[in-house]
Nucleic acid binder design. Structure first.
Lengths: 186, 186
DNA sequence: ACCTGAACACCGTTCAAGT
DNA sequence: ACCTGAACACCGTTCAAGT
């Protein structure tokens, strides 16, 4: 007689995501995940291949999340849209710092998202950039903005750069300069 | 009769650094480090407090390394010096990608460098920036450049952004725009 | 004063046995 | 068809015992 499933892939990934934010990637233990979904750790292997697969699915779910979040921030005006997308990235990183780091492959040993997956959350930024500086410079511009934002956010999250004074002001100052640098293409 | 030391702190950290570059932070096992210095793993605890301490010392040694490297690249002209420092950062990251990521605290669970430690390799960049845009905007400028460079390098290392086409050209393009954005302070 | 083997708790993973 | 306990290899760490 078949035993009814007491958990599932979706619930397991959700448990992994919450454990990730609570205690970092090291806290995403097969035992901890199993405990949270009310099952013993060997049972997890009926739903995910192994821990690497579970972390990969955690990253994928995080990418889905940030993509939906950024799509909700779309604006008609391309200049405002660029700002909204970048601000949205930072807000997401502040809400889910561990997921953000995992997403950007900042975790050695952990699986990183496929490049094609990482393009999805950047689609709207790329489109707004194309409308702003023309299609021939859109990719370079999106890269410049993304690199700066990712670097700033990462440094903010880890405190790598001693951010003396008003960190929000530093962000604003940098963002304005960056956008100016991109739009001054000629 | 005292037993002569068969290894030491310095040799242990060096072994950890080479293991780090060879296989990532997960490969820096107490057993692997011990094996490389010709000793059993319990003996390591006579020279380092624990694995976290060992990783912290690995980070410190990496910071010493990059600092010395960047100091050797100092130039009298501030504009050229800024470029030299940023190029030096990227070259170091390409030579020691795992050490670079560990340094910037990109490894959750692993210890990150104290903010004061991370200022040392950025000293020359800050000085050149002060000469270039004046002391009142030097910090903002250095942050902007560092954030962009760190973001670009991280994305380059992890392949997070699909870097189609010539990646060196993208780097050059971005660097020129960034420096222009900073020097256009007014 | 440092090194070692033995031991412990913990982790990921496998598998035969249960329902 | 999924769940479980038992088992295995591996890891970090401690400690009494060696020299």
């Amino acid at each position: 007689m078949p035993a009814p499933a007491r958990t599932g892939r979706e619930q397991i990934v959700a448990a992994a995501r919450s454990l990730l934010e609570e205690g970092g990637v090291d806290a995403v233990t097969m035992a901890a995940v199993a405990d949270r979904v009310g099952v013993r750790s060997p049972s997890l292997y009926k739903h995910v291949r192994d821990r690497g697969d579970l972390l990969a699915q955690t990253v994928a779910a995080t990418i889905d999340d940030v993509t939906a979040r950024l799509e909700a921030l779309a604006e008609p005006d391309p200049g405002r849209s660029v700002l909204a997308q970048v601000e949205g990235m930072r807000r997401f990183a502040q809400e889910q710092p561990q997921g953000f780091r995992l997403m950007f492959g900042a975790v050695p040993g952990a699986p990183r998202a496929h490049p094609s997956e990482m393009e999805r959350p950047l689609r709207l930024l790329l489109e707004a950039m194309a409308a702003l500086v023309g299609p021939e410079h859109a990719l370079d511009g999106a890269r410049l903005v993304t690199a700066w934002a990712n670097g700033f956010i990462t440094m903010e999250l880890t405190g790598a750069l001693q951010m003396g004074g008003d960190i929000d002001a530093a962000w604003e100052w940098g963002l304005r300069r960056i956008v100016a640098a991109v739009t001054a293409v000629g």
